[in-house]
Computed example of a mutant assay.
Amino acid sequence: MRIVFDFGGVVFRWHPASFLARVWPHRVGSLEQGVEVAAQFFQNYEGDWGLFDQGLIGADEVVRRIAARTGWPQGEVAAVVRAVPDELMPVPATVVLIRDLLAAGHTLHYLSNMPEPYADHLSASYPLTEWFTSGLFSGRIKQSKPHAEIYQMAERHFGGDPQDLLFLDDHPANIAAALARDWQAVLFTDATSVRRELVSRRLLNG
Rank of each mutant, 00 (worst) to 15 (best):
F42Q: 01
S123Q: 15
V96S: 12
A178L: 05
Q184P: 01
Q40H: 11
V35T: 12
L97D: 04
N205T: 15
L136F: 10
S123F: 13
F5L: 03
H15F: 13
P73D: 07
R181D: 06
G135M: 12
Y45M: 07
Q74Y: 05
F52G: 00
R65V: 05
E46P: 03
E197I: 08
Y118Q: 08
D53Q: 07
P115V: 04
D182E: 15
L51H: 13
M89T: 15
A17F: 08
D164G: 05
D53T: 09
S134V: 09
H171P: 01
G105I: 08
E155A: 10
V91I: 15
L203E: 12
P25A: 01
D164V: 01
P127T: 05
A185Y: 03
V194L: 06
H26P: 00
R156L: 10
I150M: 10
P162H: 05
L101Q: 07
A180F: 10
M89A: 14
W72M: 07
L187T: 12
F188K: 06
F137L: 08
S18G: 06
A79M: 09
D100N: 09
T129Q: 11
G29R: 15
E149N: 02
Y45K: 06
L51S: 12
F41I: 02
E130K: 06
H109S: 07
R140I: 04
S134Q: 13
K142Q: 15
I57W: 11
W131S: 00
L179N: 05
G105L: 08
Q184K: 13
H106Y: 03
D60R: 13
D182R: 15
A103H: 13
H147R: 14
L122W: 08
V81D: 03
M153Q: 15
Q143M: 14
H121I: 05
Q40T: 11
